[in-house]
Design a protein around this nucleic acid. Sequence first.
DNA 1: ACCTGAACACCGTTCAAGT
DNA 2: ACCTGAACACCGTTCAAGT
Lengths: 226, 226
Amino acid sequence: MASPTASPHGRTGRPPLTSRAQIVAAAREIIERDGWERLTVRRLAAEIGVGATTLYHHVRSKEDLLVLVLNHYLGTIERPRLPSDPRDRIIAAAVAMHDAAAAWPWAVEIVTTDGFLGLLDESALWMVEDIVAAAEDYGCTPAQAIVVFRSIWYYTAGEILVRANTARSRAGDLRPASLSRLDASRLPRLAAIGDHWATVSQGDTYPQGLRALVDGLLAQAGPAVS
Amino acid sequence: MASPTASPHGRTGRPPLTSRAQIVAAAREIIERDGWERLTVRRLAAEIGVGATTLYHHVRSKEDLLVLVLNHYLGTIERPRLPSDPRDRIIAAAVAMHDAAAAWPWAVEIVTTDGFLGLLDESALWMVEDIVAAAEDYGCTPAQAIVVFRSIWYYTAGEILVRANTARSRAGDLRPASLSRLDASRLPRLAAIGDHWATVSQGDTYPQGLRALVDGLLAQAGPAVS
DNA sequence: ACCTGAACACCGTTCAAGT
DNA sequence: ACCTGAACACCGTTCAAGT
């Protein structure tokens, strides 16, 4: 009566044809091949060669699936060597976090929840750890270090969002977004800037704004202890 | 043969039963009553009492509709009186922008496109104008003023996103998000902070981070001219 | 225990046809 | 010119039934 393929966990019944690892791998394949907008439960099931409803035996919901995929992605990112100077270390860690997010902008939607730390695996939390540790090494209290991380994350998430949406809208119709049409008497500064805005906006101002933010935050925490 | 209800614009044919103004009003009604997630083309049409396909004679797409609704909303916000000191003026304008966005977090998705300025009516651009003008009054070049605005917008949009997603996820299942489960040997600082993180995260740290960002940005532009 | 198809309750958008 | 229902091409999720 005993199943000839009884699992080592002592479970009985039909052995699984689908595994969480297989699901995550297929999801990454779809994201990389077709873009993350195409990752739907139905497509993912088709990719694996299984009924759509089967997936609900392995993940609770689509969001659950996305968290799974995100953690797998974050686990593949190597932890960078960081400078010893606390201020420079915060900036380097933030840039690493930004680069990781820029490659996977959809992840930002999952991760922009205040409780998101509870969703992430330990292997993905070193970005947070490094920033908090550097802030404390500079002389921040734990509460100040949290504010430092949060503020950097807000700034980074916003930049990623703009970056992703801009790329998406450029894929569709080009928008002129010309400011020269503006009424100079009501919006004089914007009218004067005119098309210069588009030129400046093409550049990457993330690092510059980041340095400003970090310097401002550390100044609030008091002068360096060194 | 002439229509008895020929419009003053000299157009002929069946007079419209549906107007853009009516559509925008109905959309706002749905958003305020049921939440913005419930605003669908079909629901909107039902609210007006018209076929869903009819709306496509008045708006090009759903995105077009959202831009229409957003501009109407922004047009109703009063332009605040701002301090004369440039630094304080930037902060006050940013806080006004933040408050407007916090009330309508869905709008952030529309407006986080680099070319979004081209989508907004003049009546909505005073927030941008005021920040740019204040930055220039402080002594920034136009290019620096653009970086100031962009950086503030990134930070603000990110905060709104986290705020909106946190509210949404709290409406669903409560997440514990406990950091005390962490391995202290691999993530010592986070483990030490533990549940203190949740306490600090409950507070509103937007103004504090904003001040840090603005001070950092203005320091980059050089010392005050006054 | 694992997997299935059918079904539910939706989406945004197009298009030929009606008035 | 304006409005319509039907249809297209999808979604995420549930559930009773099969193996």
